[in-house]
Design a protein around this nucleic acid. Sequence first.
DNA 1: AATTCGATTTTTGTATACAAGAATATTGAC
DNA 2: GTCAATATTCTTGTATACAAAAATCGAATT
Lengths: 218, 218
Amino acid sequence: MERRRADIIAEELEERIFDGTFPDGARLDEVRLAEKFGVSRTPLREALQRLARSGLVELIPRRGAFVRQPGPVELMEMFEVMAEVEAVCGRLAAMRISDEALKDLHDANVKCQAAINALDPDTYYIENERFHRIIYQQSGNSFLASEASSLHRRLKPFRRQQLRLRGRMKQSMAEHEAILNALENGASEEAANALRGHVAIQGEKFHSLMATLKSAAE
Amino acid sequence: MERRRADIIAEELEERIFDGTFPDGARLDEVRLAEKFGVSRTPLREALQRLARSGLVELIPRRGAFVRQPGPVELMEMFEVMAEVEAVCGRLAAMRISDEALKDLHDANVKCQAAINALDPDTYYIENERFHRIIYQQSGNSFLASEASSLHRRLKPFRRQQLRLRGRMKQSMAEHEAILNALENGASEEAANALRGHVAIQGEKFHSLMATLKSAAE
DNA sequence: AATTCGATTTTTGTATACAAGAATATTGAC
DNA sequence: GTCAATATTCTTGTATACAAAAATCGAATT
């Protein structure tokens, strides 16, 4: 599958929005960005539309494209939905998961633990992501898995921050063990609740993180 | 909010895909459609991209745009997700719903029943939709409500068919009553289960409908 | 000095032009 | 007659050109 210029530009812009180069509310000027990327306005507009559909940019007719970072309220809402979606994945996966996938989950957990011991947050993050992605897939519903991945990806930059809170990685690890346990036992509701809690707590951590950042700024 | 030509074209094309004018796998020729709509290729390509994002069209680079009706498997998956999403909405709504919204739900049910008595499936459908939409909103999570609406909309053409099955409207009505009851009592899990079942059964009905259609065609 | 109306300038939305890759047809060999 | 290689045609992706709407700036009036 070949990639169009618009795809590459969309990715690049997404990155810039995530890393804060383009702050919330910033206007994305078509001509300026076009020459910055060395392309014409046509593929750039395509990229903007793609971003608009994934919610990162608001496209106001005859006005332009504006960066739309989700506010605290919307973020909390998204974390809540993420928690519920993961819970659903877990409930279905508990009934459908393969032995091989259980092995993979176990493996991911072992590597997570090793990363914690080695104080290696990057590896931790990668293996953590693998853990969750396996559960999405093992829901046996590829549409659900795809939706879950999409939301996961969208929350990525916000989830990452709260991993820095002290003790969070260790606690998260314990939660993973509980989730794996429930899945091994085919305990649907248990798996669902464990996953819901696991993700919901991330939302709450994020919330308190936001609060401290805000009060620090005042 | 003004509307661009691309918006209008996207809507029109969506309609044509839903009603079967453009069957599954059909190639959507840019130049032909452009002159058909009396516009240039530029806004038409925008419309195609929008449809691609909502999953109705597959955009293959350097190849073109092809209609992608969901197959039976994907449809079942989508119904399963819809059932789970509605269940989540119900669980949250049971904790958060307002008295006024409960009144509205009751009103929608009364009108649904009246429509059944009057053998008026169109009104039934409208009020049924209102019933569900209220629950989405009363989840108190506008992000969730929006996702639910989007999926609801996407499944619309498939849900409509199975309402014709005899006795379905009446049974659906009884399920609505149970859902309303659970919400009134603030019974989260009950509401969730009732809604999950209510929607899941639609998927199953649809499945059997598909099966009969398929065997009839052989 | 502030405000409002108007002209100018930007900037978006759309059309057209062009370039490159894919599909198709044609010709030649076996 | 079939297959393969090449030429031709089509179609997409991108650039540029143009039109219309919005923003900006300025002058005139109060």
